[in-house]
């Protein structure tokens, strides 16, 4: 009987944990606001073509540089394109680039970090000195240098942003690996003859990836900002593709005639980053052991 109860308890636990997590988020109005704003932006990113009243590059030269009106809520750009539609289409590209760049940063950083932590000694020293030196470069200048080497274009921009941030993840997972490799199950796997590669992949990675995921989701905001900055400078995504950075750059060229194109696309950009930060603050408060008991759950 006791066994049956134990089984029932175990099977109920994950669901309850999920419910707890949801309740914990709802308890913080700032995180709730962040989540709601993020959800709206993601809906725009996913269903953009259904929501936008005009096409991404639907030209209408007779209606160029119009102020916001009923038919063009955010006004039009110098080619008469509807800015609202471009902002909606831009959400998809901007968010996609942000998420992919964050994923690439994890992809570059995690293997290096696990290797450094697991191998220790001279391998650890060499990798971590490399990582320290990499961090010494100012991020945007480093990204410019990477683009100078590999060239521009959407994919290369994502790679450059990812490469600019990978040391963060290498450090994070290295710290995890250092403590995980002392665990009994790792010793057991080693005693059973598992190869270092298998131990890193099957035992350390699945147990140490959570803080990396949290950090990576936070980095999405930074990556979207980086993309906007690079596209604004003209070395990121190239026109006529709409990203928030490109729409701002387009608007900046004609800022003296009409400020709307430069002004409005910045608002979803700020809202996206702010909502990711607000959610991230809450996650950090909840997962930081030093704040346990202090944070309202």
């Amino acid at each position: 009987m006791a066994d049956v109860a134990a089984v029932r308890f175990e099977s109920a636990a994950p669901t309850r944990r999920r419910l707890d997590a949801a309740r914990v988020f709802l308890a913080d109005p700032k995180a709730l606001l962040g989540g709601a704003v993020l959800a709206v932006i993601l809906v725009f990113a996913v269903f953009g073509p259904l929501i936008a009243p005009y096409g991404e590059n639907e030209l209408n030269p007779t209606e160029s540089l119009q102020d916001p009106s009923f038919s063009h809520p955010f006004g039009t750009d110098r080619l008469g394109r509807d800015i609202f539609s471009r902002v909606v289409y831009g959400a998809r590209t901007s968010v996609l680039i942000g998420v992919t760049a964050a994923g690439l940063a994890v992809l570059f950083g995690v293997p290096l970090g696990i290797l450094a932590g697991y191998a220790g000694g001279i391998v650890d020293d060499a990798i971590m000195r490399f990582v320290d030196a990499w961090i010494a470069f100012p991020n945007l200048i480093l990204i410019l240098a990477i683009i100078t080497i590999i060239g521009g274009g959407v994919f290369n921009i994502m790679v450059a942003i990812g490469l600019g941030a990978f040391p963060l993840y290498a450090r994070l997972i290295r710290g995890q690996t250092l403590s995980l490799k002392e665990e009994d199950y790792v010793t057991a796997a080693r005693a059973l003859g598992a190869s270092p590669g298998r131990i890193m992949l099957r035992h350390i990675l699945p147990n140490g990836y959570q803080p990396v995921l949290v950090q990576a989701s936070l980095f999405t905001g930074v990556a979207v900002l980086s993309e906007a900055g690079l596209s604004f400078l003209g070395i990121g995504v190239q026109p006529p593709t709409a990203t928030w950075g490109i729409i701002i750059a387009d608007g900046f060229q004609v800022i003296r005639q009409s400020p709307w194109g430069a002004l409005i696309p910045g608002i979803p950009l700020v809202l996206f980053v702010m909502s990711v930060n607000l959610l991230g603050d809450r996650i950090r408060d909840l997962t930081d052991p030093r704040l346990r008991g202090v944070v309202r759950r």
């Binding site: 900055g229 701002i248 430069a262 910045g266 702010m274």
Partner: peptide, 22 residues
């Protein structure tokens, strides 16, 4: 502060040009 850390400098620059110059 929350708004400040989420706002890209280049957009603040554009806003300030619109307000203080134009």
């Amino acid at each position: 502060a929350v708004i400040g850390v989420a706002t890209p400098g280049f957009w603040v620059g554009i806003l300030s040009i619109i307000v203080f110059t134009l």
